[in-house]
Simulated assay, not measured.
Amino acid sequence: MNTTPELFTRDGHTVVRASDGTFLRVTASTTTASAAELYRQVGERLTARAAQHAAPIPGREGITIAGDPAGLAALAPALSGLDATPRSPTSPDRALIMQVVAGRTQHLELDHLAAAGTGVLRCYREGDLLLIDPLMLGPEDPTGSQVLRRRIAASPAAADLNAWLDTAGEHTPGLDDLDPVALDMAGARLRQIIAAWQHNTAELPRLRRTLWMLDCATLAASEHPVLAFPEPAARPQPRSLSRP
């Protein structure tokens, strides 16, 4: 992070441009210092300001990572600098879990956590397609199950996709053999979502309803809106009729 002071003069006043793009005017008492002392004082203030600016919202400093060990290892460079702790996905201790799904049965196992206040960010691969589900933070967000059903409904080969998703095969391709550029793109997208959550940025609502898909063969990325929907009520059991 560059915190070297950028000082210039405007209308007789010394002005500093901070690394976040903010302009700060140096006070009159500071202008009497020597150039070296001035740079030292301003540098200390900018360093403190940069640290405060980069700090996540309290309670959102760290995340849990779970899932396929090889996939997590492949994403390690993209997650560097994060307070990321490996944990069992069924016993999270952070407010957000980033899960790399290794098998189809794992895709839905965390759907219940949002109702308890734990967010879920899910990443998985289907052949040459790499997908990152919408960030699920609450019951108003689409679950993994709803994402799959939305995909099936929008597919021109819905019956085939549904049958393929229901096949007995457990293994899905991992992330460890991806092209490095595709892996970098996926890592950048994950960091974008995590940063939006940690700092509650204006794009967070959009990321909670957007499925991101990367075609690893062409490196073409696309976004697809996915909205949550009320789950249908269970069909009532037929009542047995008894003769009088």
Rank of each mutant, 00 (worst) to 15 (best):
A114S: 12
G144R: 07
G81M: 09
P180C: 04
D177I: 01
A74Y: 11
L161H: 05
D176P: 01
Y124M: 11
T105C: 03
L121H: 07
T64Y: 01
G127H: 11
A182M: 05
L183F: 05
V101N: 09
D177L: 09
R94L: 01
L131A: 14
L137S: 04
R151P: 00
S91R: 15
G59L: 05
E109G: 03
R189S: 05
T90Y: 08
P173A: 10
A84Y: 09
R189C: 04
E140N: 14
V100G: 06
A182D: 01
T105M: 08
L137N: 06
P77D: 11
I65P: 04
E170S: 13
S88C: 09
A158I: 03
P58G: 07
A70E: 15
V100M: 08
V100T: 09
P92R: 11
S155G: 02
D179A: 13
R122S: 14
A78L: 05
P134Q: 12
G67R: 07
A115T: 03
A74Q: 11
G127K: 11
V120P: 00
A163M: 07
T118H: 00
A157W: 03
E126R: 15
R60L: 06
R149S: 10
W164S: 11
P156K: 10
G144F: 02
R87D: 12
A159C: 00
E170Y: 03
G67V: 05
S91T: 15
P92M: 11
D83T: 11
L96S: 09
C123E: 04
S91K: 14
A168L: 09
A78I: 04
L96K: 10
L161W: 05
L137I: 07
A66G: 06
L131D: 09
L108P: 01
S88I: 02
G127P: 01
T64K: 01
L137K: 12
Y124V: 02
V147C: 14
D176S: 15
P69A: 13
R60Y: 04
G71L: 05
R191M: 10
D68Q: 07
A78Q: 08
E126W: 09
C123D: 06
I152F: 09
T167I: 01
L165W: 13
D111P: 08
G138M: 03
D133W: 01
R94D: 00
L178P: 01
P89W: 13
V100C: 11
L75M: 10
L178G: 02
R150T: 15
R191L: 13
T118W: 00
A116C: 06
P77Y: 10
R191K: 07
A102V: 03
R87A: 15
A76H: 10
D128L: 07
R149I: 02
D111L: 05
A163C: 02
G187W: 01
P86K: 08
L82G: 03
A159H: 07
L130Q: 06
L135M: 07
E170V: 05
L137F: 02
A95Q: 14
D177V: 08
L72E: 10
R189K: 13
T172L: 14
L148I: 10
A114E: 00
A153Y: 07
V181W: 02
D93V: 12
Q106I: 01
P86S: 12
V120C: 01
L135S: 05
A157H: 13
I132S: 12
